[in-house]
Design a protein around this nucleic acid. Sequence first.
RNA 1: GCGGUAUUGGUGAAGUGAUUAACACGCCAGAUUGUGGCUCUGGUAUGCGUGGGUUUGAUUCCCACAUAUCGCCCCA
Length: 416
Amino acid sequence: MLQKPKGTMDLYGEDGYIYNYLYNYVSNFMELYNYEFIKVPTFEVTELFYRGIGEGTDIVNKETYDFVDKGDRKMTLRPEFTAGVIRSYIENKLYISQVRKFYYFGSAFRYERPQNGRLREFTQFGVEVLGVRNAFMDAEVISVAFRLLSKLGVTNMCVKLNTLGDKDSRIKYREVLYNYLVKDKENLCDTCKERLDKNPLRILDCKFDSERDYIKNAPKTIDYLNEDSRVYYEEVKMALESLDIPYVEDSGLVRGLDYYSDTVFEIVSDFEELGKANTLCAGGRYDGLTELLDGPHTPGIGFGMGIERIMIMLKELEAFIPKNRLDVFIMNMSDSSYAYQVLDDLRSSGYSCEIDYTGKNMKGMWKLVDKYEPSYVIIIGEDEVNGNYVTVKDNVTKEEYKVNASELIEYLDMNI
RNA sequence: GCGGUAUUGGUGAAGUGAUUAACACGCCAGAUUGUGGCUCUGGUAUGCGUGGGUUUGAUUCCCACAUAUCGCCCCA
């Protein structure tokens, strides 16, 4: 038997409903904040991700789905959205307007060993704001994520905040940190010994080494920020406080993608079912990225959110979802086309409506009523066909009324 | 990419080196067909992830592979 590829999912039934619900929910939510939807290609030329995400990162080095197309072009399935959005922004010269605020929702692909909440094809929702460097905008972006999750009923989450500083600060800090850590090289765990040269920042959030005092006392980014970055970070914190967004500072928070600068943040949950996959959302500022991809200097900030992880939580939160309820089920016991005409009229008038096409008997149809839980059941037999009326049964009170066909819509409008 | 655990029907699962692979839910048909969600009856895996091997005989033991899951790595 053919199986779905490793790390992919089929979503149907309740899962399909929740997935689609989230898509609609996100779309409506983003209108409040006046973000525009952007759809970018599922694959891009490989070079975009090399340059955008960074050649030294694991994502690009060993986690991409690469292929060569029939025209011998090197292509890569997007492992994230930011690089593609920025490419589109530059290519379409969207920078002629000062500020653009985008949101996206779609699949991304990473060749990883799957686990619960970690897939090879996964869904990301995210935003990218281009053209402003303003602490209140940073706060807006973080608040989008925080308020969106809160409104869904997610509790027990924590916003972690840090700053990496601008490019100069980062280079300076990296040097200081390296010199500090190299003195302790003997005591580092094996993976961190390797990380020391490649990406010393990562050692700060190593599970083993970060517990040790020597690492805890390592120089902090905050002490090596230049004046501009330091002031900016203070402004972001004040902006968050003014919006009542709770956060904790975490000097060990570094991101795996090269393009980040200044503000970085994550939202993590202590939800049990999530296990280690507890990062719901992660993002930050990337003021240098547009130039890196040959565009004009443009400040930017964004985040990505893992939809499947949200789904894992929502399924446990039961109460959150309004179940989609059918307005009307038509129980047809006649041979005429009358019932189907009523069905069509109801749908045209905006009522969700279903009928049985398989020739079930009464009991079978009542079982469907139990399954769909319609507000009303409309019964149509020979008597109704001949009399040009329908029998409407309120599925809650169980009361029945005979209603003329011509007055049915009017009747429902008054009662639903 | 590395290590551990698991894999029985549509679902939840019991079980054994050898008679028809329990039980429950679901689904299908009927009892009963203009008013149900109750009850009763019958049906529902020629098969125990896939492919090999050991054996008189394997769903049960062994190996490989696939997938899921947990940890590492990394990350949403």
